[in-house]
Amino acid sequence: MKCKFLALVLSLMLTGASSYSGTPPRKLAKKPLVVFVTGDHEYSGEETLPLIAKELEKNYGMRTIVLKAYPDHNSEKNIPGLEALKDADLAVFYLRWRQLPPDQLAHIEAYLKTGKPVMGFRTTTHAFNFPKGHESEKWNAFGEFALNSPPGWGGAAKHTHYGHSSSTDVSVIPGEAKNPILTGVGPFHARSWLYRVLPDYPVKGSTWLLMGKSVNPDKEAIENPVAWTGTNSFGGKVFMTTLGHPEDFREESFQRLVINAIHWDLGLKIPKTWKGKLNIEVPYREAK
């Protein structure tokens, strides 16, 4: 597994733009630009994340761009506007089983190789789903090389969940209680059914922030981390959460986690004052 992963990273670094050199990140603009890249069949990320983007612009002095699959969320082969990543200070991904063309993947690859920060939600562990032998098959492991998560669904990592009828009790890992990202974040109940990422993920060196315990699982369940930070294969800061059901976005603790993590990824101080709970009422839809 380790040899295959190293070969994958080397392959990505040898194509396109130069790899991250370890030089200090460029100074942020007065208003940092956050680019949200959405495209999933199930969790309405293209509806929840624009509300987060609106809040960042209204109350936190940021600029945002939200990119969406076209013509709709079920379109797996087209997310227009990815060239916006060239100017992004942070890229936030909420993807599921896309098959983007090489010219669009090139924009994502170029961003990763700058060593700038990345953030991911839930199904971004399996952001891409190219057939075996496809020229872009390496992208199926996006979750691993970009977000320190399992490299796609199932497979050797046995990445799975505990049933759609289950939900998750989320708790703060005691040793991280004073982590700035967890400011204002307490235990909460998430509608997301728990993803299994253990035993091999998050990748070694990641910092676990929140733990999830499955409620009403359809099989024997173990507790799993549901949010972590780290550094990815390109030297970029990572925040990843396997939560992201639209009902999770209604939880104030989850809202604070997301806003805090965006600030952390950008190297900004976590806001001392919370602007108040957001009104996010977006429905869940069954995957096609």
Rank of each mutant, 00 (worst) to 15 (best):
W264P: 03
F249M: 07
I52S: 09
P50M: 12
W97P: 02
P151D: 10
R26N: 13
P150H: 08
T23L: 11
L266S: 08
R63A: 11
G244S: 10
A91Q: 07
I222P: 02
V35K: 06
Y201W: 14
S75H: 08
E46P: 05
Y20W: 05
D87E: 15
L8N: 15
P217E: 02
V197L: 15
A7S: 13
I222Q: 13
V172Y: 10
N279A: 13
G186A: 12
K4H: 09
L268R: 15
I173L: 15
E247P: 02
V170M: 04
V66R: 06
G235P: 08
T125R: 04
T64C: 15
G212S: 06
N224G: 08
K31E: 11
S167N: 09
P117W: 04
N148D: 12
M1Q: 09
N74K: 12
S11W: 12
N179T: 01
S21I: 00
P80R: 05
R26V: 00
P199H: 07
S253M: 03
Y162H: 09
A287Q: 12
S206V: 00
I280T: 04
A287M: 05
Q104E: 10
G230Y: 11
L12S: 10
F130Q: 01
L14G: 14
P80T: 01
E46A: 13
T160N: 15
S165Q: 09
V197M: 14
P150D: 09
G39E: 05
D218I: 03
G61T: 00
H73G: 02
L257C: 06
I173M: 11
D87W: 07
W274H: 11
